[in-house]
């Protein structure tokens, strides 16, 4: 039986179910316990699991990331929540230099099964320091995995998978503006393996690839294009590292055109890597250059029109699709 629940509830169910199953799982972060979560993701979890397993931290990202990493290296399975991935930049040393590298540096002795999660990217007029999307930055790092779901159903299955089965560090990216989104989530337990993209809409004329909240732009554009008789295939990457480029390639073999929508800064972004892969593996199938729409190559400003102007949107995506179909100059 499926119910309609919020994205944040789906995350909460994922964590709570895994914590009931496995004593070694715990949640740590700023305001996760007594405050019930800055975005209410962990609401009620302190009441169920108690302060030993739902742990409030001071504002000390580097410190609690380090504690989480050490705990993971010593047999526990921590979930570390960052209030936003922007603050996690303070903890980057522990993620990049310790969590991701210790298995290699120790010759396979010391693994680090930890999930770092929290909201990522822009969420309205929050100013430059609360608005960065970090998927491409973390996806650059060997040794970790990067998950960035677009809906509650995927979020629950992917988070449960990350907590229970992934033996490597997982970067799990949510969005402030998606926490209230509702989706159909079954009562029955399920897991979604990492590294598998999802074809959200079948189509024949163009492939549109996106992830996280930009999936709304991709699907919105597809809907608009449908009115003009253009059939788009829309793919949700869901996991950024490892990147399921083969699903994209199979789609491009059918549509011969690819447009990528993402909130990353453009330099060395997810679209950069995907474009390289598709031109290499699918050169003969392409009827037009691969195009992309990213966040502006700039910190995100405050004014509402500047926010709109800097981020991908439906009209921009529609125009790009028409360009790769040579319908508009």
């Amino acid at each position: 039986m499926a119910r309609s629940i919020q994205f944040r509830e789906a995350l909460r169910e994922a964590m709570s179910e895994e914590m009931r199953r496995d004593e070694s799982v715990f949640l740590m972060g700023e305001e996760v316990a007594q405050y019930n979560g800055a975005y209410k993701v962990s609401q009620g979890m302190l009441a169920e699991f108690g302060p030993r397993r739902i742990i409030d931290t001071p504002i000390t990202e580097l410190g609690f990331a380090g504690v989480g990493v050490g705990a993971a290296q010593n047999g526990l399975r921590p979930i570390v929540e960052f209030m936003t991935w922007n603050f996690a930049a303070l903890a980057l040393d522990q993620i990049l230099n310790t969590a991701s590298k210790m298995l290699a540096m120790s010759g396979g002795q010391i693994s680090c099964p930890i999930v770092f999660r929290g909201p990522n990217g822009s969420a309205g007029q929050l100013g430059a320091q609360h608005s960065t999307a970090f998927e491409s930055l973390y996806a650059n790092i060997p040794g970790i995995k990067v998950v960035s779901p677009s809906n509650g159903y995927d979020a629950k299955g992917l988070l449960k998978q990350s907590i229970r089965y992934e033996e490597d560090p997982v970067i799990f990216m949510e969005s402030e503006v998606m926490y209230g989104d509702k989706s159909e989530v079954p009562e029955e337990e399920y897991y979604i393996p990492l590294g598998k993209a999802d074809i959200k809409k079948q189509g024949r004329d163009v492939t549109i690839v996106s992830f996280n909240k930009m999936m709304k732009v991709a699907l919105g554009a597809a809907e608009e294009l449908e009115k003009d008789g253009i059939s788009s295939e829309v793919i949700d990457l869901r996991t950024i590292r490892p990147l399921d480029w083969m699903t994209v390639l199979e789609s491009v073999k059918k549509t011969n055109r690819l447009v990528i929508v993402e909130e990353q800064w453009p330099f060395a972004s997810v679209s950069s890597e995907l474009s390289y892969r598709i031109q290499k593996e699918g050169f003969d199938y392409l009827d037009a250059p691969i195009r992309r729409i990213t966040a502006a190559d700039a910190p995100l400003h405050y004014a509402p029109n500047l926010v709109t102007a800097a981020l991908p949107d439906v009209p921009g995506t529609v125009n790009l699709v028409k360009e790769v179909m040579y319908l508009e100059k």
Partner: peptide, 25 residues
């Protein structure tokens, strides 16, 4: 023996985490 860490001071946080796991258990 949990290593041999090359970023000055990074092992202080990790060491506390190792201790956290011992306390947790």
């Amino acid at each position: 023996f949990y290593g041999g860490h090359g970023i000055v001071g990074a092992q202080i946080g990790v060491g506390a985490g190792l201790a956290f796991a011992e306390q947790y258990r």
